[in-house]
Design a protein around this nucleic acid. Structure first.
Lengths: 213, 213
DNA sequence: TGGCTTACGCACTAACCAGTTACTTTATTA
DNA sequence: TAATAAAGTAACTGGTTAGTGCGTAAGCCA
């Protein structure tokens, strides 16, 4: 009754195995980077045989590309679900800043995967076809939001949506991806609940002041 | 006359060999991360024997720690050389923002080394002793600058110097470390001279608006 | 129910790589 | 100048790792 779709838990389930491999791979790649990740570890954590990884995903690098694509798809889909049109421009932008922060905070693997991909000069993302459609939606969302803010008289004119997107990402991403070195340099636990709250407020302030007319 | 210190270019020069190893290691670690870096490659690029690396620097990880310490020392020293006290608060802060950007731009290895260290949860930086002194100087520099700005009546009161430091770093660091994925996502070359200039101006604007009274 | 497709697993290999052993060569100093 | 310390080298080792060959059995369909 509770699980109508998967009536019989098949002993052999290609789809489920692939899902387990992808999930394990995301964790392993995020933890150790592409180079440091071990295929054997992925197989073990997926409760699958290593042979299966090469059966479903050609190679370690092809698997990494798939994990990366899935990660971008996930964040871009979550952004689209925000439905910022229902809010006035200022509230919408603040919602977006808070969302971005929370997404990074609850999906730290995303940060590490992106870092790893940049270490490899984005060679895997280059091969991907799904990426462009996703990010175009994000830019046009920000474009509309900025235009609306100008019309409402609360945002100044002429702000580049790409620069703003990058900045919103940057102020959250940098803090969180460098949380370990940051905590040592500044001699405080940057991941303490109060510290996180403080940073999010600071980020909202930064963006609001940046766009305000 | 031109080189008074090193009269005879010795065939065997411990100091010079160590320097060559450190320089080669910085490049290799920055290019491939700690895990992806190859000790043999470092030895070859340093025109030294691999045994020398273990003679001077115990292990691969100890060498990485040393490279990382040197990198932090270099940027902190460069910051101190700015002598921001000679400028009014607004000019001083703008100078600092522009310096930070230019430093990252001309020392991209720094970004990758820090990323790599965070992938390893800052385990090497934890062992370091020189780091704290360096970063305390940076925070107090920003503290003084903010205080001066308030006294001049150009900055608002109550800005956390650590948050500001993190933000100045973030808006430059993120753009540059993610230049490869960014160029694909936004379908433009983020490293084109005009794009770089545009970003730096945007960053100055972001910080100035953030602190303005 | 027998035949065929495909999910799955064991055990291997070829290459790689951090670190070491045992040695030679060069410079310094008693 | 002989002794000694330090710089440098080549070849090796033990462990690891991405990728594979080959075999087994589960599920599907005629």
């Amino acid at each position: 009754m509770a699980t109508p779709a998967k009536a019989k838990p098949r002993l052999r389930d290609a789809e489920a195995t692939q899902k387990r491999i992808l999930e394990a791979a995301k964790k392993e790649f995020a933890k150790n980077g592409l180079g440091g990740a071990r295929v054997d570890v992925i197989a073990e954590r997926a409760a699958a045989n290593k042979r299966m990884i090469y059966h479903y995903f050609e190679s370690k690098e092809a698997l990494f590309q798939r994990v990366l694509e899935d990660a971008y798809t996930d964040i871009r889909q979550a952004e689209q679900k925000l439905e910022l049109d229902h809010l006035d421009a200022r509230a919408a932008l603040e919602t977006f800043v808070r969302f971005t922060w929370k997404y990074y905070l609850s999906n730290p693997e995303f940060l590490t995967l992106v870092n790893s991909e940049n270490l490899h000069k984005a060679k895997h993302l280059k091969k991907s076809n799904v990426i462009h459609v996703l990010s175009r939606r994000l830019v046009s969302m920000m474009e509309k939001l900025l235009k609306r803010g100008v019309e409402e008289g609360v945002f100044r004119d002429g702000i580049d949506p790409v620069q703003l997107n990058i900045t919103v990402a940057a102020i959250g991403y940098y803090y969180l991806t460098n949380r370990f070195t940051g905590s040592i340099l500044y001699e405080q636990n940057l991941m303490a609940p109060e510290a996180l709250e403080k940073r999010l407020d600071f980020n909202v302030e930064t963006i609001m002041r940046l766009v305000s007319s």
